[in-house]
Amino acid sequence: MIMSQLSPMITRMKRLDIATYAPFIALVLLIVFSSIASEHFLMPRNITNVLRQVSYTGIIALGMTFVIIAGGIDLSVGSMVALVGVLSIMIINGVGDGWWAVAMAVSSAIALGGLFGAINGLIITRGKVASFIATLATMSIFRSMTLYISDAGEMVSENQHFSDIGGGYLWAIPYPVWIFILLAIAYHILLKHSAFGRHVCAVGSNSKVASYSAIKVRWVYFLTFLIAGLSVGISAVLLASRLNSVSPGDAGLFYELDAIAAVVIGGTALSGGKGTIWGTVIGAIILGIINNMLNLMGISPYLQGMVKGMVILTAVLVQFKGDR
């Protein structure tokens, strides 16, 4: 009987393009499942922790969404987190104590992220190198630079206020989560309600049509890498502040994969042209919850990669079905 009521609803949903809502449905199912499977899951402390964990890669994934919609990819974000992190700690220790040094470190981290993103963008648009190759190269370059300037040793902040940014709370919600939410709203507006966002989708759908429509294709493409870099800058300084240190070899390791996974799980097509910010937010949260649940259920950490991989595959398969 329930089925007979459900089926017209399902056909209606099919018309609404199931691929668009798949991430949301998956998240709801996952939350229901998790709260049944573990009594700890819904505890406020656990939820706060999951969201905090999610926000670092989530912020990067927000920037990555623009790159992927425009038809590119940025593999260098993980190494960039480490490089920006190390440099920001060097800056804070160089400037000294007090809030002034913290402000300097935060603003220069964002600026440095932007600079590295711009370098990626320039190589790709001016040098006409495929983004996969260009950022594969800068991934290696950024990591190597990080190790060299830190002499591969852990960089620890000597500023007493620095750890307050990543560790602080407003109304019981950690600052990084606030920043993730605010950035998601800002990026959503940028993507869906600004001319730039429209142009990003156009470039990713068909760059030839875009250029014949008087859109500055290379400039738009460049800007997406700049946005990715700025997002990395924000994420890097939050992460450095949270730990009050950066370990040059481990920081940001495989973040590019988590960021890309979040974007793809969120329904953005890897071939470019369409995608949503809220999808990416959901994608990042799904990944976070899966990690959390594997821990809560005491499943070997060695299996976490496998589960993540299977989730990505499922997401892509659902997308592919939806396309036909």
């Binding site: 156009a202 759908s205 042209g273």
Partner: peptide, 19 residues
């Protein structure tokens, strides 16, 4: 190939130049 974006709807295509 050069005129319209096939996965955009009608309004988005019409306003692409005059956005």
């Amino acid at each position: 190939g050069k005129g319209l974006i096939m996965n955009f709807d009608i309004p988005k295509n019409i306003t692409l130049i005059s956005l």
